[in-house]
Design a protein around this nucleic acid. Structure first.
Length: 209
DNA sequence: ACATTAAGTGATT
DNA sequence: AATCACTTAATGT
């Protein structure tokens, strides 16, 4: 039995063993910024519990949420930029208290040829994220902010494990890179459709979502 | 009671 | 869909 049961089905036994000796196991409190834009990534994270929020931030601080990293996943952006030591294009913040394995980037190259399960893990992560990003791009291109909002809320519920979200309209607007007024209107529309209930600093999703 | 912050709304671009 | 201007509601001190 390995130290990390979560990863037992993902990696082969030899790799799990090596993981245990090479990885640094850390607990990250919610709100911690792990990577900021321009920074060079020196370690590869694998999430054991919690979640990470990955977003783009432009020059004047406006951000756009790209995706979340969930347990047993890593960040796809990290592979592409840290292997070649490119500066990060994204920002990573712990969304909740998280448990993370940090791997030195030097092992990644060797593991790619040494362990088939590592290779498919990397490939799977990149592929999956690519799909996600394409979806977001579609949504932005076709300006369907309402759909994007619903997708966002569902994702939040899934991550938090509760249909009651502690979010202000302002925060939602920031994540989706739009204005508060727009979000308020869309949320109101959804409330009228009985899809959710609105409170101050809280949103409650209703069953059929 | 007053100030501050979140949310709702009509009008305009 | 964004911005402005303004109102109303909830919360903190």
């Amino acid at each position: 039995m390995s130290l990390y049961p979560l990863l037992d089905t993902v990696f082969e036994p030899e790799l799990l063993e090596e993981l245990e000796t090479r990885a640094e196991h850390r607990f990250i409190p919610a709100g911690t910024k792990l990577v900021s834009i321009g920074q060079t990534v020196r370690q590869m994270p694998i999430l054991l519990s919690g979640s990470l929020k990955i977003s783009r931030v432009d020059e004047d601080g406006k951000e756009l949420l790209l995706y979340y990293v969930n347990p047993a996943e890593s960040c796809a952006m990290t592979f592409t930029c840290c292997m070649q030591q490119f500066p990060s294009e994204i920002e990573a913040v712990a969304e909740e208290d998280s448990e993370i394995l940090f791997l030195p980037i030097t092992v990644m190259d060797q593991w790619l040829v040494k362990y088939p399960t590592w290779k498919s893990f990397v490939m799977r992560t990149i592929h999956y994220r690519f799909q996600e990003l394409l979806k977001t791009v579609d949504q932005i291109a076709f300006q369907q902010l309402d759909e994007r909002l619903i997708h966002y809320l569902k994702e939040k519920v899934r991550i938090g494990g509760s249909p009651l979200l502690n979010l202000s309209h302002e925060q939602i607007a920031t994540d989706l890179a739009t204005s508060r007024v727009v979000i308020s209107r869309l949320l109101k529309k959804l409330e009228n459709q009985k899809k959710l209930l609105l409170y101050r600093n809280q949103v409650r999703l209703l069953g059929d979502m």
